[in-house]
């Protein structure tokens, strides 16, 4: 019977045995040549001297990282102080990404739960409904959000016309606007893993808890949440990481005061600043931050499995 297959499954002669390397080679070549190599090049650039109006001079320099962390006065001759401008931008980005993640969690969790507890047939329809907006161009979604929440946009007009408010609610160019934009950008990344976890959750466990006199809250906090925790964590990572380096939402909805990493980097290459080594250094710091989060996640993941 089936048990006969057991030892074989791991080491049966595979159909295309021996072809692994030639088959994987195109993927290696393309990603290696057009992503890994460029990232290494970026690392090198972050240690070069800037050329005005973009580009670099091939001369080793720590100026980019120095500029990021230290303030040496207008002429560079003062004693170095901590430069807070860029650290503040990074800190704001982290904070904004975290807030957006929380927003996604608060709204996405009940949604995922609701969908996962429908009948199998309705589930796919609900899932479809929630994911459709994600497939609409991100730029268009962000513009739509901007259009809706403008001071004299449809939302405020409707609320004023209905007499609920007398002054427009000012959302655009605030932190909340950026968070709403990020929410709109990445919500499915929160809903889908949680949905998958809830769908696998065995509701007999809830019944067993209720049978053993657990209240609804106790069942939720002590039985359900620990069981579906991996899905929640995966969702949070999937929203947090892209939010951190997002460009469109802060750029279109945040305004000048709510500058985030993405805009800072963009300005070094496309904007007026034109400082490539500094942009490369900021990108390296962002990449390190993201890899740190992913490594922590991977380690926590293996610890839980092991």
């Amino acid at each position: 019977m089936a048990a006969d297959l057991q030892p074989k499954a791991s080491s049966s002669t595979s159909t295309y045995a021996g072809l692994g390397i030639p088959l994987i080679l195109p993927a290696w070549a393309i990603i290696g040549f057009f992503l890994v190599l460029p990232v290494m090049m970026m690392l090198i650039y972050s240690f070069l001297t800037k050329e005005f109006r973009g580009g670099v001079i091939w001369e080793f320099s720590l100026a980019a990282y120095d500029q990021f962390f230290f303030d040496r006065g207008l002429f560079g001759d003062e004693l170095p102080k901590i430069e807070w401008t860029y650290i503040t931008i990074f800190w704001r980005s982290i904070w904004q990404a975290a807030a957006a993640t929380l927003l996604c969690l608060v709204i996405g969790f009940p949604t995922a739960w609701f969908i996962a507890t429908r009948t199998a047939r309705n589930r796919s329809i609900w899932l479809f409904l929630v994911t459709i907006p994600y497939w609409v161009n991100l730029l268009i979604r962000t513009i739509s959000m901007k259009f809706l929440i403008r001071d004299n946009g449809p939302m405020n007009e409707l609320l004023m016309a209905s007499g609920l408010i007398s002054e427009p609610i000012h959302i655009i160019n605030t932190n909340l606007a950026v968070q709403l934009g990020l929410f709109y950008s990445y919500l499915p990344f929160m809903v889908l893993p949680i949905y998958a976890a809830v769908e696998r959750y065995n509701f007999a466990l809830s019944e067993a808890a209720a049978d053993l006199y657990a209240s609804r809250t106790i069942t939720l906090t002590q039985i359900i949440l620990p069981t579906i925790k991996p899905g929640i964590i995966a969702g949070c990572i999937l929203v947090f990481v892209p939010s951190l380096g997002a460009f469109l939402a802060p750029d279109l909805l945040g305004g000048a005061k709510n500058f985030m990493i993405g805009s800072l980097i963009e300005e070094q290459f496309k904007g007026a600043a034109g400082n490539w080594p500094f942009g490369a250094a900021a990108s390296m710091i962002l990449l390190s931050l993201v890899l740190l989060v992913l490594t922590l996640y991977a380690r926590q993941q293996t610890r839980e499995q092991g």
């Binding site: 990603i31 057009f34 460029p38 970026m42 650039y45 380096g245 963009e266 490539w276 993201v290």
Partner: peptide, 20 residues
Amino acid sequence: LINLPLMVPEIVTAVATLIF
């Protein structure tokens, strides 16, 4: 490696590709 493009933030990929 195959999943690397998903892990590197888009803006970083953009910068690295431009520089490259």
